[in-house]
């Protein structure tokens, strides 16, 4: 009996720190070197659809971070009791439940953005990143690490979403954060913009008169180009990611 207690105490001392190097790796890796969008090329569908403005991109990113983290946590907690035969169905139910909760919450908290994102919140259910992490990580790892992994992957996805949304909104609409209280109009026709393309300056010439918003940027194809360029730049700069085959 005495020996049993001793072994237990030693195990407690050897317990990992709550946020050690392993956790940091799980959190940081998906942001760059193992980004779900640019490296694993998952979840591209919604990245094309919701990124025409920054604000909805941020809301979408927050929703995915929440769903990914909580789904990973729940699955990991249940991983020993989930029957192998129905594990994919169980994972899907967990994701669908969380997404429905997010949808309801958004409807109650921020109705205008709920209207704007419309079906895309619901489509988080089909986002390959979430289910991919459940199957690849949460089914085989402890709850805390799974949670960190989920948050990390959600953030990796959200980072790309916000970057793409920023580029598309600035060049496509001439503003940032449109639709939120922080809207800032950068360039366009009208006195509400910081750079007004229609009013002449002190020398009487309209210096930015040639400027027009890029119509391509507001279409989904622009996100395709931007994501492709991000992938290219990232792979070119990091020798680890160069595909030798």
């Amino acid at each position: 009996m005495a020996t049993a207690t001793e072994t237990k105490e030693i195990r407690i001392e050897e317990k990992d720190p709550w946020f050690g190097s392993k956790e940091r790796e799980l959190m940081v890796d998906p942001l760059l070197d193992n980004n779900p969008i640019t490296i694993q090329v998952l979840g591209v569908c919604s990245a094309l659809a919701v990124t025409s403005l920054v604000y909805p991109s941020i809301v979408m990113a927050v929703a995915v971070v929440f769903v990914c983290g909580m789904a990973n946590l729940t699955t990991s907690l249940l991983r020993k009791s989930i029957p192998k035969a129905v594990r994919l169905i169980v994972q899907l139910v967990i994701i669908a439940t969380l997404v429905t909760l997010v949808n309801e919450a958004l409807k109650a908290l921020n109705y205008p953005v709920y209207k704007q994102l419309s079906v895309y919140i619901g489509l988080i259910i089909t986002n390959c990143i979430v289910m991919g992490r459940l199957e690849a990580f949460a089914m085989a790892n402890r709850p805390w690490r799974s949670f960190v992994d989920g948050i990390g992957n959600g953030l990796g996805y959200g980072l790309i979403l916000i970057v793409v949304g920023f580029i598309r909104e600035v060049f496509g609409k001439g503003s940032v954060f449109a639709g939120s209280g922080l809207e800032f109009k950068i360039i366009g026709a009208g006195s509400t913009y910081a750079i007004d393309t229609t009013t002449p300056d002190q020398w009487g010439s309209t210096f930015f008169g040639w400027y027009a918003n890029n119509g391509l940027m507001v279409m989904s194809v622009a996100a395709m180009f931007i994501i492709a360029v991000l992938i290219w730049v990232q792979r070119a700069r990091n020798p680890k990611l160069v595909d030798v085959s």
């Binding site: 009791s81 989930i82 129905v86 169980v90 429905t100 909760l101 309801e104 409807k107 109650a108 109705y111």
Partner: peptide, 25 residues
């Protein structure tokens, strides 16, 4: 048994949130 239990829990959770948040929405 697992699937039935899961369905019941999920159904209660979703019904609760829908009813609770409906007036605000």
């Amino acid at each position: 048994l697992f699937v039935v239990a899961m369905t019941v829990v999920v159904a209660l959770l979703l019904a609760g949130s829908a009813v609770g948040l409906a007036p605000i929405a």
